[in-house]
Amino acid sequence: MAAIAVKVLLIIPAYNEEESILGVVDTIRSSGYDYIVVNDGSTDKTAEICQEAGINLINLPRNLGIGGAVQLGHQYALQNGYDIDIQVDGDGQHDISYVPQLVQGIEDGADLVIGSRFVEQTQGFTSTVMRRTGITWLRLCIQLISGLTIYDSTSGFRACGKRAISLFARTYPYDYPEPESIVRAHRAGLSIKEVPVSMRERQGGVSSISPLKSIYYMVKVSLAVFIEGFGSRNARNR
């Protein structure tokens, strides 16, 4: 399938990533993909650094959280006619040499392709025991609610096809959106697929999830998954 070139956009949400953003964007630039950095109302010098370096940047005037920033990326992709958009974290965890695999997943017919650390035993960073336990719990929740088996539901390294882009541009979950958006996409009848990737440890900055917040996070995300899931049953009945 050589004739039609698909337009691919990399979305890099960045909140206070002044230490790592240049490195991430440099790798993307040298790879030749279109990209957009979504500055989520950073309070550090992220915006200035990007502007000085001539980085393609879109600025949220206020901090909306990761959900709002990613959604803006989808809206930008929709507005500019991209066929596929791929979310890449601004902290350097995601290895963009896996982008072709994600794109291939979309071209094979999936609407949402998730880059997963756990589908196959890939090399690289697989996060802490605590976090892996949480991810297993989420896998069981999502399985119970939708019948889908997603091994790495919190992965933010994911590709969306046209249908997923227009769904997420319209409606995207708020605070910790990754697992919830999977259930939402499933409910909207989109097909979801995982492909193996490996991840690195973050290059700079602090993770958005501190140990203290992790229990709150798990309760909230589980609840969100269940509520989304119950909606799906009703939606199918109607």
């Binding site: 879109i58 600025n59 949220l60 909306l64 709002g68 959604q71 803006l72 809206q75 930008y76 507005q79």
Partner: peptide, 14 residues
Amino acid sequence: IRMLIQQIALLQKK
């Protein structure tokens, strides 16, 4: 408000 903030960002970019 979230939607408005996103619209502002998109318009500014455009």
